[in-house]
Write a protein that binds this DNA or RNA. Sequence first.
DNA 1: AGTGGTTTGGTACTTTAGTATGAACTGATT
DNA 2: AATCAGTTCATACTAAAGTACCAAACCACT
Lengths: 136, 136
Amino acid sequence: MRKTIIVFGLLILGLLLLFQFSKYAVISGDLDSEFTIAIIAVVFFFVGVYLNKRSLQKRHSASEDIDHKKIKSLNISKREYEVLLGISEGLSNKEIGEKLFVSESTIKTHVSNLLSKLNAKRRTQALQKAKDFNII
Amino acid sequence: MRKTIIVFGLLILGLLLLFQFSKYAVISGDLDSEFTIAIIAVVFFFVGVYLNKRSLQKRHSASEDIDHKKIKSLNISKREYEVLLGISEGLSNKEIGEKLFVSESTIKTHVSNLLSKLNAKRRTQALQKAKDFNII
DNA sequence: AGTGGTTTGGTACTTTAGTATGAACTGATT
DNA sequence: AATCAGTTCATACTAAAGTACCAAACCACT
């Protein structure tokens, strides 16, 4: 946030300076008007590109980031979420158990709880719903 | 493609006209230079935004579009691909069969072939690999 | 110290997924 | 006409997934 303000401040300052400079240059005849206009055009072109990229980046990350609030509202615990990630990696219950250093039985319990919390009948359906909810 | 060329042609034409107009306006004194510069700045700002949005859209769709060549190179048939989509929707073999009006046995055959073609051990792993390959 | 939520793990069971194999039919290609 | 790839389906089997239920241990909170 602070960074954004600083960047914008410098940007506005630079543009004001550019305006004043170009006005002076045209009036005093040091530069011809076409050249000045070209500089202005190029500068604003890149300003447009930059600002647009910024806003798109924000929108992009917002649509891809994990919705932690949704996870909480679904009452999915930390461990259950780790199991969900294991499922999304295509692991079997046994493999998830080995990864998390617990037994397959434990994973089965977590999976069963996950399915009921996500209102899914299968792990593949859980994946599909989890994607819809932006929690993976 | 034709659309793009027309748009760019009109854009360049418009900019050239703007240049000529602004030069005339400044020389003849009908407009002051600040106003002209402001117009140029605004126009190029939006040109920058527009072009950037275009290029990002292309890049975006390229990363999300389905890689049909990859599907072919993996020797995945039309029917097998339909089954893969069923899996990605979280359907069971039986449900996929009902959707495609064939028996569960047929779906099992397709799934088994899919798994070997994708070098996966489970349907969830097939999903993960299919995403990596950008084929779903 | 007791409560509630989480994590762990077990047994016993049902359901679904996946493999292996064989076979018949279709449509396009040569 | 013969071949090949794709689709269909079946049987019989093994493996994995999922359910239901129970129980112990843990941690944070009041």
